[in-house]
């Protein structure tokens, strides 16, 4: 049961959790790992890879919505991905998604100030989308390594 070992000794940074880097909130991700059965990581693995599939789909939808200048859809998609990324503890992804959600509502990134100009919102989303894709790619790299190792 090498994975159990990793999990329990993650503080020591041997393998596993400590290698996840800053972009993943270990505490949150640990909760997912805790849901695994004793002898394998199938559950969390399926969740995590399920997320990356989901992110991929969502990005496609976002690109389409961006072309259509559909701010509402973008906001909804941002919200959607925000939820699942937050569940995994992918904080960077979550933050970017939240920004997209707000931009889509014609607000500033914190969602507090109105931004009337839709083009501004769209270009902001476009920028953020680049970032969030990178963030997801980074997280995927780290997590794939994590699951390959363990």
């Amino acid at each position: 049961m090498p994975d159990r070992h990793d999990e329990e000794h993650s503080e020591e940074g041997s393998v596993g959790l400590a290698d996840l880097g800053d972009s993943i909130d270990v505490g949150t991700f640990e909760q997912i790992l805790e849901m695994d059965d004793d002898d394998d990581r199938d559950f969390s693995k399926s969740i995590v890879f399920g997320f990356f599939d989901q992110a991929e789909e969502t990005f496609v939808k976002m690109d389409t919505a961006l072309e259509k200048k559909d701010l509402k859809e973008l906001s909804a998609l941002g919200h959607f991905l925000k939820g699942s990324s937050a569940t995994l503890g992918l904080n960077n992804v979550k933050d970017s998604c939240e920004k997209i959600q707000h931009y889509g509502q014609k607000k500033d990134e914190a969602g507090t100030v109105d931004e009337k100009d839709e083009d501004v919102c769209l270009s902001r989303i476009k920028e953020t989308l680049v970032t969030v894709k990178d963030d997801v790619a980074d997280a995927e790299k780290v997590l794939r390594k994590f699951y390959a190792d363990s």
């Binding site: 399920g50 939820g83 699942s84 569940t87």
Partner: peptide, 16 residues
């Protein structure tokens, strides 16, 4: 829950 992932995790929690 509309997000399958969240739903699965939530369900897992509850089952535990």
């Amino acid at each position: 829950e509309d997000d399958k992932m969240c739903a699965r995790i939530g369900a897992r929690f509850l089952q535990q």
